Structures are given as structure tokens and as C-alpha cells.
Simulated assay, not measured.
Amino acid sequence: MVYTIVNLTSVLVIREVEDFLAEYPLDHPYQVFFSRSYFRHKLIAHILCKIPNRHIVVEDVENLPNNSNYLRFSLEERLKIENLIAKEIPYILNGDSTIRCREFVTPKAPINQGFVWEENYN
């Protein structure tokens, strides 16, 4: 029998990040920047490192219950995660990351009608 350890806290953090970003329009810098999996994973990792993580051991990951009973977190835990999301997004955007948003997002036109990614990792 093969067992798998599932990090329940990461499931909650991912949902909370998605909910937080959903509050902004698609052309908002938060949406544009964190649509990149690298930056989204970096945000999630920053948050997970700052809170206690809850795990379960399951036999078959594909047969996890569809209900969210196993994702019961206290209001205090959820609020802490929401506050960390709000705190970590500017931290990552404002240059504490080696790659900054403005290096990747450039306006399509002088009147800022939208954004285009520029791959420039140097």
C-alpha cells in the first residue's frame, strides 16, 4: 500500500490566494504578475513558511473526499493567511525579489491599453 502526505494548509493557501486575486480586474498588475506560475508559487511558499502547516496521510490522493470537512481551519488561521497574502504581495512586487514586475510587464501602447510579457531574467 502506498501512502501520500497531503499538506492541507497549502490547499487552503492556494484557495485564499485565488480568492484574493479574483477581487482585482484581469489587467491589474497583481493579476498580471501573479498569473505567472513562478511568482504565484513564490507567494504561496512565502506564506507557507510563516504559518504552521497541517498534513494528513491518505492511501489514494485521487479519492480525497469532495467535501471540505478536512479543510476546517479556524477564523483566526484564515485571517492570518489573508493578512499574510496582503503583506507578501507587495513584498514580492517591491524588489525583495530578484525579478521585478516592471521588468516583465510593459505597456502595449503609450495609453496603457494592456500589458505584454517580456521575458528578461537578467
Rank of each mutant, 00 (worst) to 15 (best):
M1D: 09
V2M: 10
T4A: 14
T4H: 15
V6F: 08
N7K: 08
T9E: 02
T9L: 01
S10T: 07
S10C: 02
V11K: 12
L12G: 02
I14K: 13
I14D: 12
R15V: 04
R15T: 06
V17S: 00
V17E: 02
E18W: 05
E18G: 07
D19S: 13
D19R: 15
D19F: 13
A22E: 07
A22G: 06
E23T: 05
E23N: 08
Y24T: 01
Y24L: 02
Y24G: 00
P25E: 01
P25I: 02
P25G: 00
L26S: 09
L26A: 12
L26F: 09
L26G: 01
D27Q: 13
D27P: 01
H28F: 01
P29A: 01
F33N: 05
F33H: 09
F34V: 04
R36W: 06
R36N: 10
S37P: 01
Y38D: 06
Y38K: 14
R40W: 15
K42P: 04
K42C: 12
L43V: 07
A45Q: 13
A45G: 07
H46P: 00
L48A: 04
L48M: 09
C49R: 15
I51E: 05
P52E: 05
N53W: 05
R54G: 01
H55A: 10
I56E: 06
I56L: 06
V57S: 10
V58I: 07
V58G: 03
V58S: 03
D60I: 01
V61N: 03
V61C: 00
E62K: 11
E62M: 05
E62R: 12
N63F: 11
L64N: 02
P65Q: 06
S68C: 02
S68E: 09
N69Q: 12
N69M: 05
N69S: 13
N69Y: 08
N69K: 12
Y70E: 00
L71D: 08
L71S: 06
R72F: 14
F73V: 01
S74Q: 04
S74V: 02
L75H: 11
L75M: 07
E76K: 07
E77N: 03
E77Q: 12
R78C: 11
K80W: 02
I81K: 02
N83D: 06
I85T: 04
K87L: 11
K87Q: 11
E88M: 10
I89D: 05
I92V: 02
L93Y: 10
D96T: 10
S97I: 02
T98S: 07
T98K: 13
T98L: 11
T98H: 08
I99K: 09
R100C: 10
C101S: 14
C101Q: 11
C101I: 04
R102A: 07
R102W: 15
R102C: 11
E103Y: 14
F104W: 14
F104K: 12
F104A: 04
F104R: 14
V105E: 07
V105D: 00
V105H: 05
T106W: 09
P107E: 05
K108L: 15
A109D: 15
P110G: 06
I111E: 15
N112V: 14
N112E: 14
Q113M: 07
G114Q: 08
F115M: 13
F115R: 12
F115D: 07
F115E: 09
E118V: 15
E118K: 15
E118Y: 13
E119K: 15
E119P: 09
N120Q: 08
N120R: 14
Y121M: 12
N122W: 13
